[in-house]
Design a protein around this nucleic acid. Structure first.
Length: 355
DNA sequence: CACGCGTGGAG
DNA sequence: TCTCCAAGCGT
């Protein structure tokens, strides 16, 4: 790094910026309360960090509010029913997070006396908590100077040190830079400040270097390379898959749904019975979950997952009361909330519902 | 280490 | 419409 500033100077410049500019978020303790000695609630820190994994602040806010209102502490969440938690998570994505959230809450309740351990290694051992989240909880909730390295920090470090090695190979050196900059005092504020910097100033496409407290020390800014960093190994294009979903409505208004297997795509979530989703050059078959007169809708449901596009053919049927399904169960209208469905399944419902 | 795993917003 | 991407984790 050219013109390298001392770590202490960078740390104080960043904390000054953070104290002046920090966003007020529901899981944060404000500057005044923090000055009065108030500490963040580890439960709130943990819950927010799990929700924020690969997910924007704007998307998380309403879910965080709903969860903390309904389950105010880890004991309450540990006692919740699986289906209630999965339904409350519906729409937020990456549903393994919700399954691990419950597992983690139950381990903390049963084996840690209902309190999150103030220890990086112990946190790392909990379900759904990896290197980033363990460090974030340790730093933010317990003032432990653990290296907090997420995508924001990687980008900020890559630019600050003008590191051109592509990710993920550059991860170790970027982590070392972040660790060397982590202060002993207020490590949680420092971590959130670096992430805020990445989220609001040192953004991926058009960084606002004119507003950056670290610009004088930034090697990429001096070199004019900030817009090219961090380098990443290119991703492969998403293939298209297709399949069939069956939306059966009984004459009393009940819908035929099934809980998907724990593992795999949309695991543990409610959904419409259907075929496997296969490549476009293969046939998905036609295996309805109940004997009925099926009608194909003119419009298919389209949805994009992390690694493929899906075109889902929708077939509907009206079935009499006295007929048992081969798959799934009928959910009566008063117990069925479309909001409990993952987004793909809700899209299908919106196209198939009687209007 | 590479891959599977959601969703909605921005450009 | 399309690509990229956001406070990653588990296997």
């Amino acid at each position: 790094m050219r013109d390298s500033a001392a770590p202490a100077a960078l740390q104080s410049a960043l904390l000054d910026w953070y104290d002046a500019e920090a966003r007020d978020l529901p899981w944060r303790v404000g500057p005044a309360a923090r000055a009065a000695g108030e500490r963040p609630d580890p439960y709130a820190v943990w819950l927010s960090e799990i929700m924020l994994q690969q997910t924007t602040v704007a998307a998380v806010k309403p879910y965080f509010d709903a969860f903390t209102r309904r389950w105010p502490d880890v004991g309450a969440l540990a006692a919740a029913r699986d289906a209630d938690v999965m339904a409350a998570w519906a729409g937020l994505g990456y549903y393994a997070r919700a399954r691990n959230l419950l597992k983690c809450a139950r381990v903390v309740a049963a084996e840690h006396d209902g309190r999150f351990p103030a220890d990086h290694a112990a946190l790392l051992a909990l379900p759904g908590i990896g290197p980033y989240t363990a460090a974030a909880i340790a730093a933010i909730a317990f003032d432990i100077p653990a290296p907090v390295v997420d995508g924001n920090v990687e980008r900020v470090m890559a630019r600050l040190f003008d590191e051109h090695t592509p990710l993920p190979a550059a991860k170790p050196v970027l982590t070392a830079h972040a660790a060397a900059l982590t202060p002993a005092a207020r490590p949680g504020c420092h971590a959130q400040a670096v992430m805020d910097l990445g989220a609001t100033i040192c953004t991926p496409r058009s960084p606002a270097c004119g507003l950056c407290p670290w610009r004088p020390a930034c090697a990429a800014w001096h070199a004019g390379t900030q817009r090219e960093l961090p380098k990443k190994t290119p991703k492969t294009a998403k293939p298209v898959r297709h399949g069939v979903a069956y939306l059966a409505r009984r004459v009393d208004g009940a819908w035929l749904l099934e809980t998907r297997p724990e593992r795999g795509l949309l695991g543990g979530m409610l959904g419409w019975p259907g075929t496997d989703w296969v490549a476009l050059d293969a046939a998905p078959g036609d295996t309805p979950p109940i004997r009925a007169e099926w009608h194909t809708l003119p419009e298919e449901a389209r949805h994009t997952f992390t690694h493929f596009h899906l075109r889902l053919t929708l077939r509907t049927a009206l079935v009499p009361m006295d007929r048992a399904p081969d798959r799934g169960r009928f959910v009566p209208p008063e117990a069925f909330r479309p909001a409990d469905l993952p987004t793909l399944m809700r899209k299908a419902f919106d196209l198939a519902r009687p209007r």
